[in-house]
């Protein structure tokens, strides 16, 4: 359940930001979650309810923007989308792809008051 640690990280970042940006309540949190990052959206939402309870973000809605896995196929000299690390190239069905995106876990923006 690393989603708990991740939610704690999100909350810590929001609290630090609230001091810099002088806001008292968070209505929404927009996250960017890569398909290869190994994070389950539902588990993240579940953990968020526990972690955010009683804080400035208690009622904040998590908006999760899913980003596809992206890889470079050296054989096809092309960028393709993948769902998992072990997926073959969708064109040549070869392996040995170089991952180029979809591993991120980012806080994009907050809606605050």
């Amino acid at each position: 359940m690393h989603e708990l640690s991740l939610c704690q990280g999100i909350l810590d970042a929001i609290v630090a930001e609230s001091r810099r940006q002088a806001f008292r309540r968070v209505r929404g949190v927009q996250l960017e979650i890569g398909a290869l990052a190994g994070v389950d959206g539902e588990a993240l939402r579940y953990a968020w309810e526990t972690v955010a309870a009683g804080t400035l973000a208690a009622t904040a809605v998590l908006e999760i923007v899913a980003v596809p896995g992206v890889a470079w196929c050296p054989a096809c000299r092309a960028t393709i989308n993948i769902g998992e690390y072990y997926d073959p190239c969708s064109r040549c069905h070869g392996h040995g792809l170089k991952i180029s995106g979809g591993e991120q876990l980012r806080i994009r923006q907050l809606e605050v008051e």
Binding site: L6, E17, Q21, F23, R108, E111
Partner: peptide, 20 residues
């Protein structure tokens, strides 16, 4: 920061969750 019509505003963070 972008002000919303209902008194809310958007704060852009663009920060890795695992930054710490």
């Amino acid at each position: 920061e972008v002000m919303g019509i209902d008194g809310t505003r958007i704060v852009r963070m663009e920060q890795d969750i695992l930054a710490r």
